[in-house]
Design a protein around this nucleic acid. Structure first.
Length: 312
DNA sequence: TCATCTACCACTTTTGAATCGA
DNA sequence: ATCGATTCAAAAGTGGTAGATG
């Protein structure tokens, strides 16, 4: 498996999202840095959806609805950080591959969904601090609609094009390490790269079911509990990161997203250079791939925007 | 006619079993 | 007998594309 550090050595090992420390880089506002906690997400509600564990061990029934999310992709300011009613005091989450997400979000992230299930790229990868090293926790991820609209690619940008499809039965992905001790979760970043998205409403594999051409927001939930089916919860905290919003598609609409995926995803190397599959790869992206120095001096989106005479 | 979806392709990475040597 | 390193084939994950679908 790959790691952002391997893809972008210049970015370092993590991207702090917590409130800036004195003297630290203050380019990230605290509200954005903190993620977001949902005030009405509490233990009893989570208890009900965790009772749905059946044949698919890592997929659950619907989580409770959460407060209104920003309606636009990457254009709204981050919500102010809010403490959950039954939160885990002192616990904070940071998005490890935040810079990569920001690159995609600046263009308008799209995620392919297929009948068989498709992984997310970038994947949600988070670091957690403030857990009780001895206590046991569950790490969950779900994806919820951002608004009530269906979207259409209009050649240059995404625009609402009608009412959203009826909301599908929500599913929750449980990180396979769950339950594990706080020490385990804090030891290294927690990756949800195995999460798969599908548009099959009858999906039997436990993938997260989405509508195509709709805008979604991943959420990460942390639950203190000794077992998956525990009836006793020590606390719950939920987080979302605005830069991880995306529009689900069955085929990429924005060519810039295609180029970013090809450039950043190791599995798409076959489309980068040489070989049959490099037809659509533009020259400047070749430059980005082959020259670490070029990428270090400009972000991917900057490079794409600066590409002279490039037709997308 | 058009937008969207599906199946298949070639390519790359990941995974795990088998093998070997210390 | 055990352990770690290496090798290799199969499985899984990519975007592109042609054709199907509504």
């Amino acid at each position: 498996m790959y790691h952002p550090r391997e893809l972008y050595p210049s970015l370092g090992s993590s991207y702090r999202l917590g409130p800036p420390q004195p003297g630290a880089d203050s380019s990230f506002p605290p509200a954005l840095a903190e993620g977001y906690r949902y005030p009405d997400l509490n233990s009893p509600k989570l208890d009900c959806f965790l009772s749905g564990i059946e044949a698919v061990p890592h997929t659950l029934a619907a989580p409770p609805p959460l407060p209104t999310l920003p309606p636009a992709l990457g254009t709204e300011p981050a919500p102010a950080a809010a403490e959950a009613l039954h939160s885990l005091p002192g616990v904070s989450l940071s998005l490890e591959n935040r810079e990569l997400w920001k690159e995609f979000n600046s263009v308008g992230t799209e995620m392919i969904i297929t009948k068989a299930g498709r992984r997310m790229f970038p994947a949600c990868r988070v670091s957690v601090t403030g857990l009780d090293p001895e206590a046991r926790y569950l790490f969950l991820l779900d994806v919820v609609p951002v608004d009530g609209a269906r979207y259409r690619w209009q050649g240059q940008r995404w625009e609402p094009s009608g009412k959203a499809e009826p909301r599908l039965p929500d599913r929750v992905y449980i990180h396979p390490d769950s339950p594990a001790t706080g020490a385990h979760w804090m030891r290294q970043p927690v990756s949800f790269h195995r999460v798969k998205l599908t548009n099959s409403t009858l999906d039997p594999h436990g993938h997260l079911i989405l509508h195509s051409m709709h805008k979604y927001q991943p959420r990460v939930h942390l639950v203190q509990a000794a077992q998956l089916c525990s009836q006793h919860w020590g606390g719950v905290a939920s987080f979302r990161f605005p830069e991880t919003m995306f529009i689900s598609v069955t085929a990429y609409q924005n060519p810039q997203i295609t180029q970013l995926k090809i450039a950043a995803n190791p599995f798409a190397k076959g489309f980068r250079e040489n070989g049959r599959n490099c037809k659509r790869l533009v020259p400047f992206v070749h430059l980005i791939i082959h020259s670490t120095n070029v990428y270090q001096s400009a972000t991917m989106s900057q490079a794409l925007c600066l590409m002279p005479g490039t037709q997308w």
